[in-house]
Design a protein around this nucleic acid. Sequence first.
DNA 1: TTGAAAGCGCTAACAC
DNA 2: GTGTTAGCGCTTTCAA
Lengths: 342, 342
Amino acid sequence: MSSKPAKGTPTLVDIAKLAGVSRATASRVINGVPTVDKAMAAAVRKAVKSTGYTPNPAARSLVNGKAGSIALVISGSDGSAEQVFGDPFFGRVTGGVVKYLGTVGIHPSLVLADSDQARTDAVNFVRRGNADGALLVSTHADDPLPGLFVAEGIPAVLFARPARPVPISFVDLAHGRGAAMAAERLVERGCQRVVTIAGPADLPAAQDRLTGFRQAMAQYGKPYVPVAEGNFTLASGEAAMATLLAEQPDLDGVFAANDLMASGALRVLRDRGRSVPDDVAVIGFDDSEPAHAARPRLTTIAQPIEEMAAEMSRILLDLIADPSAPPISKIFDPYLVTRDSA
Amino acid sequence: MSSKPAKGTPTLVDIAKLAGVSRATASRVINGVPTVDKAMAAAVRKAVKSTGYTPNPAARSLVNGKAGSIALVISGSDGSAEQVFGDPFFGRVTGGVVKYLGTVGIHPSLVLADSDQARTDAVNFVRRGNADGALLVSTHADDPLPGLFVAEGIPAVLFARPARPVPISFVDLAHGRGAAMAAERLVERGCQRVVTIAGPADLPAAQDRLTGFRQAMAQYGKPYVPVAEGNFTLASGEAAMATLLAEQPDLDGVFAANDLMASGALRVLRDRGRSVPDDVAVIGFDDSEPAHAARPRLTTIAQPIEEMAAEMSRILLDLIADPSAPPISKIFDPYLVTRDSA
DNA sequence: TTGAAAGCGCTAACAC
DNA sequence: GTGTTAGCGCTTTCAA
């Protein structure tokens, strides 16, 4: 059948020979160049199918200077690898990215940047051509990594706005709007004495949620909202709730900046004999696992994480296609998920 | 200073020229070949440092036929992308892999195989040279993917033993031993009427846990252990606990095959006015987030997931270095984490 | 020990 | 429209 004994995986010359055309033509067909004779194109495609040929990505990259891949950089504080990945939030972001990129045939390289060394390595990894651009997901808003990528002129997109202004594209959530939705819900239920459990003050997202909530409450004629700060953990939510209860024993509405703290609040409310949502209405934020696990199930503000992750990927792809394009941002609206707690 | 205007990123010839040696020698130094004149080697290293040179991975791959990368394949049932990544278990495996591989300078490509199409794509991805081997993490034990990789002769290692025997390397947990530890703990506490909430019968891990628990209890003189099957969810844990309570109202010890079901059990026990651990001792499995969030905090059996993930990576690297090596497996011991519920 | 030279598989001018 | 040819940047015989 064939003129020569096939050795190893087939290459373009094998295809060309088999189809009776030149390497150039075979290459054209494979890359979808339209100006090719029908018959020849068909012959090439047949050869490809029969041999199971797939182009060698290294050879391709070498000639056209593109890696055909992108890096998904998870940037955490020093040495906090496992914690980062154990957080479903990052898992969902990763899932959204992988899912979307999979549809265009690209599989991201996961790189962990949790030390200065790792950060430079990450930059070099893409700088040297292992990836055409980077998706950055940080645990901390004041991450130095975005700056590094920008400085190298590497196409990059952030998940969540950076704490300090950096000329870089990003996607983010309208945290303030989400908080306002919570306020609206509480007010609609008729809550008169509403309090809030805020997140860490140094986190832009936590700030936005607090500010958004206060502003919305002010619009509803409640300019003063008692607040206790937590750090997004269950225990801090419990502590904050206890503090708030001491300050305002007759409170009837709680907005917590995340679900875990809301779960903590639910617990102390229950221990104090307050019925939720009858005595006190509680709303969380994120629609994460704890929201489902809580009893009563938590009414919460959800973020379209996967959608945001997909958009982030799309933006990066565009940026890679046209590196001179200016940074852009896209802000997504959260939505209220009504369950039993409010 | 330099003889020619530097255009773009430096290449090996730039280094060679700068160091006054041939490309071959420069390459040798960079690749750590020992038989190079001290002075020349020093000159090359200096040139590398001054230019910030890094080898082009595509060119390297092209010549030596190795990708210098590996694929981390998450294989789920059809279309269940997000769910998979939202599960901290997979997050921890991923974290362990990324962390370990990072130490040897390699960043895995994440590929999601959640459809037949995606599975073939995944195989092709590495077959065509994007990766030298694959790490496989499946949600279902009867995953067809391991077989596909084996059939292609691609180096691959599994996290958890496959349901049907396949000649492939894997790491796994001694699930039965973990269950036995739970049994021992319960018996030591003096529990007399112990029951268990099992996982899905078609999952090898769940089977092992149930079998291990029964065998251990039998050794302690308790050949009969009432069992109710759940599906690893909170709700199924609640249902199972209710069933068991109906069957054995005076039970005083519960072993649940995972923490989420144990949390469910804790809840109904509490609702029925049983005090944990005084009236009833409860032990979970996995030491996952719910174990911390539960009240009382859950005593549970922990798996060294990150360690297992690192070992899986190590095994793959060895396999890539010597593809003719036979499949090997490594089984890790779980350990008891004592908290408040038992 | 070192250098010259031959590719690895592919794409993209550039002629035909 | 199609084929020829020149590399992309690197490693690696093979001589010297």
